[in-house]
Amino acid sequence: MKTQKNKKIKSADVRGQKGESWLYSDVVKEHFFNPRNFMHYDEEKKFKFNATGRVGSPACGDEMVLWLKIDPKTEKIKDCRWRTFGCGSAIASTSVMSEMVKEKGGMKLDDALKITPNDIMKRLGGLPDRKIHCSVLGDKALQAAINDYFRQTKQHKRIITAGAKVIDKDLNITDHDIEEAVLEGAHTIEDVQKRLKVGVAKPEAKEAIEELIRFYWEKYFS
């Protein structure tokens, strides 16, 4: 994953003169050592959710899974759980993001989609420059989970496809979706559809999807 430079954010990569202060801000430290809302082993079967998103891969150093419990009437995020493979800042970013979407009775989906890496970082009290990419995964996971919710509830038009190439306009399937599916082992168009929980794709999109599957398969597995 590439580092995003953002000079406006004050870097917290400063150790105190006495060598006692932390590489990260106190908020990062607090969330890292006492992470909120992660999926404990004993909750796996009990936690009720209606949307989930997985982004990243261990090979690029970060992977995150997010489970959301969304109230269909108010479209508010009532609860969430997460699991993250990554460094201290990736874990702290996820934890703080999970707190942001849950607090004050739950964030509305439209507002949650507006959360940027910057918002997460501000709340963390900054991240060292070369750690900024770690906070990007949090909002990506959130977007993936909310997209999953839209897909499950047949609101295909609401699926956010910013920054990605839309392959199937009706179902709003993007090249990113296909990449993620392939990373999870999808090998055919049926595998991809099964993973995205969508029906038959448009005939004209089918060829493009198959081509992308081949592309990502070769990229990652050959």
Binding site: L23, F32, F33, P58, G61, F85, G86, C87, G88, A90, I91
Partner: peptide, 10 residues
């Protein structure tokens, strides 16, 4: 299945 920096910090 876990990452080194996180272990290091703990």
């Amino acid at each position: 299945n876990i990452e080194g920096e996180a272990m290091l910090l703990y």
